[in-house]
Design a protein around this nucleic acid. Structure first.
Lengths: 206, 206
DNA sequence: TTGATTATTGAACGATCGTTCTGTATCGAT
DNA sequence: ATCGATACAGAACGATCGTTCAATAATCAA
Protein backbone atom coordinates (compact mmCIF):
# COMPACT_ATOMS: atom_id res chain seq x y z
CA UNK A 1 0.00 0.00 0.00
CA UNK A 2 1.35 3.41 -0.95
CA UNK A 3 1.14 6.22 1.55
CA UNK A 4 -2.30 7.78 1.35
CA UNK A 5 -1.05 11.31 1.74
CA UNK A 6 1.53 10.91 -1.00
CA UNK A 7 -1.03 9.65 -3.50
CA UNK A 8 -3.46 12.54 -3.10
CA UNK A 9 -3.78 14.85 -6.09
CA UNK A 10 -2.81 13.20 -9.34
CA UNK A 11 -2.19 16.41 -11.19
CA UNK A 12 -3.11 16.91 -14.77
CA UNK A 13 -2.25 13.80 -16.79
CA UNK A 14 -4.65 14.74 -19.56
CA UNK A 15 -8.27 15.72 -19.96
CA UNK A 16 -10.27 12.49 -19.70
CA UNK A 17 -11.79 11.18 -22.90
CA UNK A 18 -15.35 12.41 -22.71
CA UNK A 19 -16.80 10.05 -25.31
CA UNK A 20 -15.09 7.00 -23.87
CA UNK A 21 -16.44 7.86 -20.42
CA UNK A 22 -19.90 8.46 -21.88
CA UNK A 23 -19.82 5.09 -23.60
CA UNK A 24 -19.24 3.40 -20.26
CA UNK A 25 -21.91 5.55 -18.62
CA UNK A 26 -24.35 4.62 -21.37
CA UNK A 27 -23.97 0.93 -20.54
CA UNK A 28 -24.52 1.55 -16.86
CA UNK A 29 -27.64 3.73 -17.23
CA UNK A 30 -28.92 1.42 -19.96
CA UNK A 31 -28.71 -1.62 -17.72
CA UNK A 32 -29.73 -0.21 -14.35
CA UNK A 33 -31.78 2.83 -15.22
CA UNK A 34 -31.35 6.36 -13.95
CA UNK A 35 -32.30 6.00 -10.31
CA UNK A 36 -30.46 2.74 -9.69
CA UNK A 37 -27.20 4.03 -11.09
CA UNK A 38 -25.18 5.93 -8.50
CA UNK A 39 -22.43 8.43 -9.08
CA UNK A 40 -20.12 6.02 -7.25
CA UNK A 41 -21.00 3.37 -9.84
CA UNK A 42 -20.27 5.82 -12.63
CA UNK A 43 -16.94 6.82 -11.11
CA UNK A 44 -15.94 3.18 -10.74
CA UNK A 45 -17.03 2.25 -14.26
CA UNK A 46 -15.60 5.24 -16.12
CA UNK A 47 -12.47 5.53 -14.01
CA UNK A 48 -13.04 9.27 -13.88
CA UNK A 49 -13.12 11.03 -10.52
CA UNK A 50 -16.41 12.48 -9.33
CA UNK A 51 -15.13 16.06 -9.40
CA UNK A 52 -14.14 15.69 -13.05
CA UNK A 53 -17.54 14.34 -14.00
CA UNK A 54 -19.18 17.27 -12.23
CA UNK A 55 -16.84 19.72 -13.93
CA UNK A 56 -17.81 18.30 -17.32
CA UNK A 57 -21.53 17.62 -16.86
CA UNK A 58 -22.65 19.78 -13.89
CA UNK A 59 -24.55 17.00 -12.13
CA UNK A 60 -26.03 13.54 -12.50
CA UNK A 61 -28.91 14.81 -14.61
CA UNK A 62 -26.50 16.62 -16.90
CA UNK A 63 -24.42 13.50 -17.29
CA UNK A 64 -27.57 11.54 -18.10
CA UNK A 65 -28.53 14.12 -20.72
CA UNK A 66 -25.12 13.72 -22.32
CA UNK A 67 -25.56 9.96 -22.16
CA UNK A 68 -28.88 10.26 -23.99
CA UNK A 69 -27.24 12.23 -26.77
CA UNK A 70 -24.37 9.76 -26.94
CA UNK A 71 -26.78 6.84 -27.21
CA UNK A 72 -28.80 8.66 -29.85
CA UNK A 73 -25.68 9.44 -31.87
CA UNK A 74 -24.35 5.91 -31.78
CA UNK A 75 -27.24 3.46 -31.44
CA UNK A 76 -30.42 5.31 -32.42
CA UNK A 77 -28.89 6.74 -35.56
CA UNK A 78 -28.04 3.25 -36.78
CA UNK A 79 -31.47 1.94 -35.83
CA UNK A 80 -33.34 4.59 -37.79
CA UNK A 81 -31.08 4.58 -40.83
CA UNK A 82 -33.60 2.70 -43.00
CA UNK A 83 -36.22 5.35 -42.29
CA UNK A 84 -33.97 8.04 -43.73
CA UNK A 85 -32.76 5.98 -46.67
CA UNK A 86 -34.41 7.44 -49.79
CA UNK A 87 -33.50 4.34 -51.81
CA UNK A 88 -35.89 2.17 -49.81
CA UNK A 89 -39.62 1.79 -50.29
CA UNK A 90 -41.79 2.60 -47.31
CA UNK A 91 -42.30 -1.07 -46.58
CA UNK A 92 -38.60 -1.81 -46.87
CA UNK A 93 -37.82 1.09 -44.59
CA UNK A 94 -40.15 -0.11 -41.85
CA UNK A 95 -39.02 -3.69 -42.33
CA UNK A 96 -35.43 -2.56 -42.01
CA UNK A 97 -36.26 -0.60 -38.87
CA UNK A 98 -37.91 -3.55 -37.16
CA UNK A 99 -35.16 -5.93 -38.18
CA UNK A 100 -32.51 -3.62 -36.82
CA UNK A 101 -34.51 -3.32 -33.64
CA UNK A 102 -34.63 -7.11 -33.37
CA UNK A 103 -30.88 -7.49 -33.69
CA UNK A 104 -29.96 -4.37 -31.75
CA UNK A 105 -32.24 -5.15 -28.80
CA UNK A 106 -30.78 -8.64 -28.46
CA UNK A 107 -27.16 -7.75 -29.25
CA UNK A 108 -25.00 -9.79 -26.86
CA UNK A 109 -22.43 -7.06 -26.16
CA UNK A 110 -24.95 -4.50 -24.94
CA UNK A 111 -27.75 -4.48 -22.36
CA UNK A 112 -30.97 -5.96 -23.69
CA UNK A 113 -33.70 -3.76 -25.10
CA UNK A 114 -33.61 -0.09 -25.96
CA UNK A 115 -32.07 2.49 -23.67
CA UNK A 116 -34.70 5.05 -24.62
CA UNK A 117 -37.51 2.77 -23.50
CA UNK A 118 -36.19 1.32 -20.27
CA UNK A 119 -33.65 3.67 -18.72
CA UNK A 120 -36.28 5.84 -17.06
CA UNK A 121 -39.53 3.94 -17.32
CA UNK A 122 -40.51 4.94 -13.81
CA UNK A 123 -38.82 7.68 -11.87
CA UNK A 124 -39.20 9.83 -8.77
CA UNK A 125 -40.98 13.19 -9.03
CA UNK A 126 -37.68 14.90 -8.21
CA UNK A 127 -36.19 13.64 -11.46
CA UNK A 128 -39.26 14.14 -13.60
CA UNK A 129 -37.10 16.14 -16.00
CA UNK A 130 -35.15 12.96 -16.72
CA UNK A 131 -38.31 11.11 -17.67
CA UNK A 132 -39.30 14.03 -19.88
CA UNK A 133 -36.02 14.01 -21.79
CA UNK A 134 -36.47 10.39 -22.79
CA UNK A 135 -40.17 10.79 -23.52
CA UNK A 136 -39.41 13.68 -25.85
CA UNK A 137 -36.86 11.53 -27.67
CA UNK A 138 -39.37 8.70 -27.98
CA UNK A 139 -42.06 10.98 -29.30
CA UNK A 140 -39.64 12.60 -31.72
CA UNK A 141 -38.62 9.19 -33.04
CA UNK A 142 -42.25 8.22 -33.49
CA UNK A 143 -42.91 11.48 -35.31
CA UNK A 144 -40.01 10.73 -37.62
CA UNK A 145 -41.50 7.33 -38.44
CA UNK A 146 -44.97 8.76 -38.99
CA UNK A 147 -43.56 11.44 -41.23
CA UNK A 148 -41.89 8.76 -43.33
CA UNK A 149 -45.21 6.93 -43.59
CA UNK A 150 -46.94 10.11 -44.68
CA UNK A 151 -44.43 10.47 -47.48
CA UNK A 152 -45.10 6.87 -48.44
CA UNK A 153 -48.83 7.46 -48.40
CA UNK A 154 -48.40 10.54 -50.58
CA UNK A 155 -46.60 8.38 -53.10
CA UNK A 156 -49.38 5.81 -53.06
CA UNK A 157 -47.41 3.16 -51.23
CA UNK A 158 -50.10 2.59 -48.61
CA UNK A 159 -53.67 1.41 -48.82
CA UNK A 160 -55.97 4.39 -49.19
CA UNK A 161 -57.84 3.65 -45.97
CA UNK A 162 -54.67 3.50 -43.88
CA UNK A 163 -53.96 6.33 -41.46
CA UNK A 164 -50.17 6.84 -41.41
CA UNK A 165 -50.34 8.20 -37.87
CA UNK A 166 -52.05 5.07 -36.57
CA UNK A 167 -49.78 2.77 -38.56
CA UNK A 168 -46.74 4.60 -37.25
CA UNK A 169 -47.98 4.38 -33.68
CA UNK A 170 -48.59 0.68 -34.20
CA UNK A 171 -45.11 0.02 -35.57
CA UNK A 172 -43.63 2.06 -32.77
CA UNK A 173 -45.67 0.15 -30.21
CA UNK A 174 -44.41 -3.16 -31.53
CA UNK A 175 -40.86 -1.87 -31.31
CA UNK A 176 -41.36 -0.72 -27.73
CA UNK A 177 -42.83 -4.08 -26.86
CA UNK A 178 -39.89 -5.80 -28.52
CA UNK A 179 -37.64 -3.94 -26.10
CA UNK A 180 -39.52 -5.38 -23.13
CA UNK A 181 -39.39 -8.82 -24.73
CA UNK A 182 -35.65 -8.49 -25.20
CA UNK A 183 -35.25 -7.49 -21.56
CA UNK A 184 -37.12 -10.64 -20.64
CA UNK A 185 -34.71 -12.74 -22.62
CA UNK A 186 -36.25 -13.01 -26.08
CA UNK A 187 -33.78 -14.22 -28.70
CA UNK A 188 -33.12 -12.42 -31.94
CA UNK A 189 -35.11 -15.06 -33.79
CA UNK A 190 -38.11 -14.58 -31.55
CA UNK A 191 -37.88 -10.83 -32.05
CA UNK A 192 -37.63 -11.30 -35.81
CA UNK A 193 -40.73 -13.50 -35.75
CA UNK A 194 -42.60 -10.78 -33.92
CA UNK A 195 -41.42 -8.18 -36.41
CA UNK A 196 -42.43 -10.39 -39.29
CA UNK A 197 -45.90 -10.87 -37.85
CA UNK A 198 -46.27 -7.12 -37.45
CA UNK A 199 -45.33 -6.65 -41.08
CA UNK A 200 -47.65 -9.39 -42.27
CA UNK A 201 -50.60 -8.11 -44.22
CA UNK A 202 -48.96 -4.75 -44.58
CA UNK A 203 -51.61 -2.37 -45.87
CA UNK A 204 -49.98 -1.95 -49.24
CA UNK A 205 -51.85 -0.26 -52.05
CA UNK A 206 -53.13 -2.99 -54.32
CA UNK B 1 -47.42 21.86 18.64
CA UNK B 2 -47.96 19.03 21.10
CA UNK B 3 -45.11 18.00 23.32
CA UNK B 4 -42.91 15.57 21.44
CA UNK B 5 -42.29 13.29 24.38
CA UNK B 6 -45.99 13.02 25.23
CA UNK B 7 -46.88 11.94 21.71
CA UNK B 8 -44.41 9.07 21.53
CA UNK B 9 -45.98 5.63 21.38
CA UNK B 10 -49.54 5.67 20.17
CA UNK B 11 -50.44 2.26 21.51
CA UNK B 12 -52.53 -0.23 19.66
CA UNK B 13 -55.51 1.42 18.02
CA UNK B 14 -56.08 -1.50 15.66
CA UNK B 15 -54.05 -3.57 13.27
CA UNK B 16 -53.69 -1.46 10.17
CA UNK B 17 -55.66 -2.51 7.13
CA UNK B 18 -53.14 -4.43 5.09
CA UNK B 19 -55.03 -4.34 1.81
CA UNK B 20 -55.79 -0.64 2.06
CA UNK B 21 -52.13 0.08 2.72
CA UNK B 22 -51.11 -2.18 -0.16
CA UNK B 23 -53.48 -0.37 -2.49
CA UNK B 24 -51.74 2.89 -1.72
CA UNK B 25 -48.33 1.24 -2.06
CA UNK B 26 -49.37 -0.18 -5.42
CA UNK B 27 -50.03 3.31 -6.76
CA UNK B 28 -46.70 4.58 -5.52
CA UNK B 29 -44.59 1.73 -6.92
CA UNK B 30 -46.64 1.77 -10.09
CA UNK B 31 -45.93 5.43 -10.73
CA UNK B 32 -42.35 5.76 -9.55
CA UNK B 33 -40.96 2.26 -9.85
CA UNK B 34 -39.18 0.24 -7.21
CA UNK B 35 -35.95 2.17 -6.80
CA UNK B 36 -37.45 5.63 -6.89
CA UNK B 37 -40.01 4.85 -4.20
CA UNK B 38 -38.59 5.29 -0.72
CA UNK B 39 -39.85 3.82 2.51
CA UNK B 40 -40.43 7.37 3.69
CA UNK B 41 -42.74 7.87 0.69
CA UNK B 42 -44.57 4.67 1.53
CA UNK B 43 -44.97 5.66 5.17
CA UNK B 44 -46.35 9.06 4.16
CA UNK B 45 -48.72 7.62 1.55
CA UNK B 46 -50.07 4.69 3.56
CA UNK B 47 -50.12 6.49 6.90
CA UNK B 48 -48.56 3.40 8.46
CA UNK B 49 -45.38 3.73 10.50
CA UNK B 50 -42.20 2.21 9.13
CA UNK B 51 -41.87 -0.33 11.93
CA UNK B 52 -45.37 -1.60 11.26
CA UNK B 53 -44.63 -2.04 7.58
CA UNK B 54 -41.48 -3.95 8.48
CA UNK B 55 -43.39 -6.12 10.95
CA UNK B 56 -45.87 -7.03 8.24
CA UNK B 57 -43.61 -7.35 5.19
CA UNK B 58 -40.06 -7.85 6.54
CA UNK B 59 -38.46 -5.27 4.28
CA UNK B 60 -38.93 -3.15 1.17
CA UNK B 61 -38.55 -6.11 -1.15
CA UNK B 62 -41.14 -8.05 0.83
CA UNK B 63 -43.54 -5.15 0.66
CA UNK B 64 -42.97 -4.96 -3.08
CA UNK B 65 -43.66 -8.67 -3.43
CA UNK B 66 -46.95 -8.19 -1.58
CA UNK B 67 -47.70 -5.23 -3.83
CA UNK B 68 -47.15 -7.40 -6.89
CA UNK B 69 -49.63 -9.95 -5.60
CA UNK B 70 -52.10 -7.22 -4.75
CA UNK B 71 -51.83 -5.75 -8.24
CA UNK B 72 -52.18 -9.18 -9.79
CA UNK B 73 -55.25 -9.95 -7.71
CA UNK B 74 -57.00 -6.69 -8.51
CA UNK B 75 -55.84 -5.41 -11.90
CA UNK B 76 -54.25 -8.33 -13.74
CA UNK B 77 -57.10 -10.67 -12.96
CA UNK B 78 -59.55 -8.28 -14.56
CA UNK B 79 -57.27 -7.74 -17.54
CA UNK B 80 -56.94 -11.43 -18.30
CA UNK B 81 -60.58 -12.37 -17.68
CA UNK B 82 -61.38 -12.73 -21.39
CA UNK B 83 -58.56 -15.25 -21.76
CA UNK B 84 -60.14 -17.48 -19.16
CA UNK B 85 -63.71 -17.02 -20.37
CA UNK B 86 -64.73 -20.31 -22.03
CA UNK B 87 -67.72 -18.63 -23.69
CA UNK B 88 -65.48 -16.55 -25.93
CA UNK B 89 -63.85 -17.59 -29.18
CA UNK B 90 -60.10 -17.34 -29.32
CA UNK B 91 -60.31 -14.18 -31.37
CA UNK B 92 -62.85 -12.64 -29.03
CA UNK B 93 -60.69 -13.52 -26.07
CA UNK B 94 -57.61 -11.82 -27.51
CA UNK B 95 -59.68 -8.88 -28.69
CA UNK B 96 -61.12 -8.55 -25.21
CA UNK B 97 -57.66 -8.72 -23.67
CA UNK B 98 -56.29 -5.95 -25.88
CA UNK B 99 -59.33 -3.77 -25.38
CA UNK B 100 -59.11 -4.12 -21.64
CA UNK B 101 -55.43 -3.29 -21.87
CA UNK B 102 -56.27 -0.15 -23.84
CA UNK B 103 -58.75 1.09 -21.27
CA UNK B 104 -56.85 -0.10 -18.21
CA UNK B 105 -53.52 1.38 -19.30
CA UNK B 106 -55.12 4.77 -19.89
CA UNK B 107 -57.50 4.73 -16.93
CA UNK B 108 -57.49 8.26 -15.44
CA UNK B 109 -57.61 7.19 -11.79
CA UNK B 110 -54.48 5.05 -11.94
CA UNK B 111 -50.90 5.56 -13.16
CA UNK B 112 -50.54 5.10 -16.90
CA UNK B 113 -49.43 1.79 -18.35
CA UNK B 114 -49.05 -1.55 -16.67
CA UNK B 115 -47.39 -1.97 -13.30
CA UNK B 116 -45.89 -5.30 -14.35
CA UNK B 117 -44.12 -3.73 -17.29
CA UNK B 118 -42.80 -0.48 -15.88
CA UNK B 119 -42.34 -0.80 -12.13
CA UNK B 120 -38.92 -2.43 -12.40
CA UNK B 121 -37.84 -1.98 -16.00
CA UNK B 122 -34.28 -1.24 -14.94
CA UNK B 123 -32.94 -1.91 -11.51
CA UNK B 124 -29.71 -2.12 -9.53
CA UNK B 125 -27.91 -5.46 -9.22
CA UNK B 126 -28.66 -5.45 -5.50
CA UNK B 127 -32.37 -5.69 -6.20
CA UNK B 128 -32.12 -8.12 -9.08
CA UNK B 129 -34.60 -10.34 -7.25
CA UNK B 130 -37.20 -7.61 -7.68
CA UNK B 131 -36.70 -7.57 -11.42
CA UNK B 132 -36.97 -11.35 -11.45
CA UNK B 133 -40.29 -11.36 -9.63
CA UNK B 134 -41.89 -9.14 -12.25
CA UNK B 135 -40.24 -10.92 -15.14
CA UNK B 136 -41.61 -14.23 -13.89
CA UNK B 137 -45.08 -12.71 -13.71
CA UNK B 138 -44.77 -11.36 -17.24
CA UNK B 139 -43.57 -14.67 -18.60
CA UNK B 140 -46.32 -16.52 -16.77
CA UNK B 141 -48.92 -14.18 -18.23
CA UNK B 142 -47.52 -14.73 -21.70
CA UNK B 143 -47.57 -18.48 -21.17
CA UNK B 144 -51.23 -18.22 -20.17
CA UNK B 145 -52.01 -16.39 -23.39
CA UNK B 146 -50.06 -18.84 -25.52
CA UNK B 147 -51.80 -21.74 -23.84
CA UNK B 148 -55.13 -20.21 -24.74
CA UNK B 149 -54.00 -19.86 -28.34
CA UNK B 150 -52.92 -23.48 -28.40
CA UNK B 151 -56.41 -24.49 -27.31
CA UNK B 152 -57.81 -22.31 -30.06
CA UNK B 153 -55.51 -23.88 -32.61
CA UNK B 154 -56.52 -27.35 -31.46
CA UNK B 155 -60.11 -26.39 -32.15
CA UNK B 156 -59.26 -25.14 -35.62
CA UNK B 157 -59.74 -21.47 -34.80
CA UNK B 158 -56.37 -20.46 -36.20
CA UNK B 159 -54.86 -20.67 -39.64
CA UNK B 160 -52.98 -23.93 -40.00
CA UNK B 161 -49.63 -22.24 -40.64
CA UNK B 162 -49.85 -20.09 -37.52
CA UNK B 163 -47.56 -20.86 -34.59
CA UNK B 164 -49.53 -20.12 -31.41
CA UNK B 165 -46.30 -19.39 -29.54
CA UNK B 166 -45.28 -16.71 -32.03
CA UNK B 167 -48.77 -15.25 -32.21
CA UNK B 168 -48.93 -15.13 -28.43
CA UNK B 169 -45.55 -13.44 -28.21
CA UNK B 170 -46.72 -10.94 -30.81
CA UNK B 171 -49.93 -10.11 -28.98
CA UNK B 172 -48.01 -9.82 -25.74
CA UNK B 173 -45.44 -7.57 -27.39
CA UNK B 174 -48.15 -5.24 -28.64
CA UNK B 175 -49.60 -5.11 -25.15
CA UNK B 176 -46.22 -4.30 -23.61
CA UNK B 177 -45.72 -1.59 -26.20
CA UNK B 178 -49.16 -0.21 -25.43
CA UNK B 179 -48.03 0.25 -21.85
CA UNK B 180 -45.10 2.40 -22.97
CA UNK B 181 -47.43 4.33 -25.25
CA UNK B 182 -49.80 4.94 -22.37
CA UNK B 183 -46.92 6.16 -20.21
CA UNK B 184 -46.09 8.60 -22.97
CA UNK B 185 -49.61 9.97 -22.95
CA UNK B 186 -51.47 7.92 -25.52
CA UNK B 187 -55.24 8.22 -25.22
CA UNK B 188 -57.59 5.28 -24.94
CA UNK B 189 -58.66 5.83 -28.53
CA UNK B 190 -55.10 5.73 -29.77
CA UNK B 191 -54.50 2.55 -27.81
CA UNK B 192 -57.67 1.02 -29.23
CA UNK B 193 -56.54 1.89 -32.74
CA UNK B 194 -53.25 0.13 -32.08
CA UNK B 195 -55.07 -2.90 -30.73
CA UNK B 196 -57.36 -2.94 -33.73
CA UNK B 197 -54.43 -2.82 -36.11
CA UNK B 198 -52.80 -5.71 -34.29
CA UNK B 199 -55.97 -7.74 -34.64
CA UNK B 200 -56.27 -6.88 -38.33
CA UNK B 201 -53.45 -9.32 -38.81
CA UNK B 202 -55.36 -12.06 -37.08
CA UNK B 203 -54.69 -15.40 -38.84
CA UNK B 204 -58.15 -16.85 -38.75
CA UNK B 205 -58.73 -20.24 -40.30
CA UNK B 206 -59.98 -19.73 -43.86
C1' DT C 1 -59.65 -4.61 37.88
C1' DT C 2 -55.45 -6.13 36.70
C1' DG C 3 -51.37 -7.73 34.06
C1' DA C 4 -49.22 -9.73 30.09
C1' DT C 5 -49.29 -9.09 25.24
C1' DT C 6 -48.45 -6.58 21.19
C1' DA C 7 -49.17 -3.30 17.39
C1' DT C 8 -47.90 1.08 17.28
C1' DT C 9 -45.04 5.22 17.49
C1' DG C 10 -41.10 8.85 16.87
C1' DA C 11 -36.41 8.70 17.15
C1' DA C 12 -32.09 6.93 15.99
C1' DC C 13 -28.90 3.75 13.44
C1' DG C 14 -25.06 2.98 9.91
C1' DA C 15 -24.67 3.18 5.02
C1' DT C 16 -24.97 5.40 0.94
C1' DC C 17 -26.82 9.11 -1.82
C1' DG C 18 -25.39 13.34 -4.87
C1' DT C 19 -22.35 17.00 -4.35
C1' DT C 20 -18.50 20.07 -2.89
C1' DC C 21 -14.00 21.07 -1.13
C1' DT C 22 -9.07 21.00 -0.37
C1' DG C 23 -4.77 19.92 -1.90
C1' DT C 24 -1.44 18.42 -5.53
C1' DA C 25 0.80 17.18 -9.82
C1' DT C 26 1.13 18.50 -14.41
C1' DC C 27 0.73 21.67 -18.14
C1' DG C 28 1.63 26.15 -21.19
C1' DA C 29 3.55 30.65 -21.14
C1' DT C 30 7.07 33.56 -19.82
C1' DA D 1 13.77 27.93 -14.89
C1' DT D 2 9.78 29.55 -12.91
C1' DC D 3 5.04 30.82 -12.30
C1' DG D 4 0.06 30.82 -12.46
C1' DA D 5 -3.63 27.98 -14.42
C1' DT D 6 -5.94 23.75 -14.62
C1' DA D 7 -7.60 18.97 -14.20
C1' DC D 8 -7.16 15.62 -11.28
C1' DA D 9 -7.32 12.73 -6.66
C1' DG D 10 -9.27 11.61 -2.13
C1' DA D 11 -11.70 13.31 1.77
C1' DA D 12 -15.65 15.22 3.62
C1' DC D 13 -20.30 17.42 3.38
C1' DG D 14 -25.44 17.33 4.63
C1' DA D 15 -29.35 14.70 3.21
C1' DT D 16 -31.65 10.71 2.63
C1' DC D 17 -31.61 5.76 2.13
C1' DG D 18 -33.50 1.19 4.31
C1' DT D 19 -33.78 -0.58 8.78
C1' DT D 20 -34.08 -1.14 13.87
C1' DC D 21 -35.04 0.25 18.64
C1' DA D 22 -36.95 1.70 23.06
C1' DA D 23 -41.02 3.52 24.71
C1' DT D 24 -46.09 3.55 24.91
C1' DA D 25 -51.00 2.59 25.00
C1' DA D 26 -54.80 -0.22 23.48
C1' DT D 27 -56.23 -4.85 23.87
C1' DC D 28 -57.81 -9.42 25.94
C1' DA D 29 -57.65 -13.16 29.39
C1' DA D 30 -58.07 -13.77 34.10
Amino acid sequence: MTDTKARRGAGRPREFNTDAALDKAVRLFWQRGYEATSMADLVAETGVAAASLYAAFDNKAGLFAAVIERYAATFSVHLYEPINDPALSTFEAVKGLLERAASSFSEPGTPAGCFMYSAAAAVSPASAAIECMLRDKRIAAEALLIERLHRGAAQGELAADTDPAVLGKFINTVMEGMSVQARDGATINELLSIAEMALDRWPAAV
